[in-house]
Simulated scan of single mutants.
Amino acid sequence: MQPSDTPLYNHPLPDIESWLSSHGCQQDPANLNNWTLERSAWRAELVLDIDSIVVSYHTVGADSRDVQRSFKYSLSRRDLEEVIFAGP
């Protein structure tokens, strides 16, 4: 795998999939670009879009609303780990 400070767009897809799996994400077998992540305090769906990872955190916040964020592949893997897996 590339160094963690390498932009995600420089990682081959199998490495990105392995990285997501190593963080507890589960790939949707029917839609291979969709992933889910369960944590004790929140749940998220990740979509590997054309130029970004779109993360939808479900039922979070004081009013239990969904929160959606988009992170460009130009961010490093380390930066993405810090923002995605820390939660909403």
Rank of each mutant, 00 (worst) to 15 (best):
M1P: 07
M1R: 08
M1W: 05
M1K: 11
Q2K: 01
Q2S: 01
P3N: 08
S4A: 12
S4V: 07
S4L: 12
D5W: 06
D5V: 03
D5I: 03
T6I: 14
T6A: 10
P7L: 13
P7C: 13
P7W: 01
L8N: 00
Y9I: 10
N10D: 10
H11I: 01
P12M: 09
L13T: 09
L13K: 02
L13W: 12
P14I: 08
D15A: 07
D15R: 00
D15W: 05
I16E: 01
I16A: 05
I16N: 00
E17Y: 08
E17H: 08
W19L: 07
L20Q: 07
L20F: 14
L20V: 11
S21R: 05
S21N: 07
S22C: 12
H23S: 10
H23N: 13
G24T: 09
G24N: 07
C25G: 11
Q26P: 04
Q26D: 13
Q27D: 10
D28H: 01
D28L: 03
P29V: 06
N31I: 14
N31W: 09
L32H: 14
L32E: 14
N33K: 14
N34L: 15
W35D: 09
W35Q: 09
L37E: 06
E38I: 12
E38C: 10
E38G: 08
R39S: 09
S40H: 14
S40W: 12
W42K: 11
R43S: 14
A44Q: 07
A44C: 10
E45H: 08
E45W: 06
L46W: 07
L48R: 12
L48S: 01
L48T: 01
D49Y: 02
D49Q: 13
D49R: 15
I50R: 11
I50F: 00
D51L: 01
D51H: 04
D51E: 06
S52Y: 00
S52T: 00
S52M: 00
I53D: 03
I53H: 04
I53W: 04
I53G: 00
I53E: 02
V54K: 15
V54I: 10
V55M: 05
V55S: 04
S56T: 15
Y57R: 13
H58C: 10
H58S: 11
H58Y: 15
H58Q: 14
H58N: 10
H58G: 07
H58P: 03
T59F: 12
T59M: 12
V60C: 15
D63P: 01
D63I: 10
S64T: 10
R65E: 09
R65W: 06
D66K: 10
V67A: 08
Q68T: 15
Q68W: 02
Q68D: 03
R69A: 05
S70Y: 01
S70K: 12
F71D: 03
F71N: 04
K72C: 04
K72N: 07
Y73W: 06
L75V: 03
S76K: 03
R77I: 14
R77M: 12
R78F: 05
D79Y: 04
D79K: 06
D79W: 00
L80T: 02
E81R: 13
E81Q: 15
E81P: 06
E81H: 11
E82I: 05
E82K: 14
V83Q: 06
V83G: 04
A86C: 09
A86N: 13
P88I: 08
P88H: 15
P88D: 08
P88Q: 09
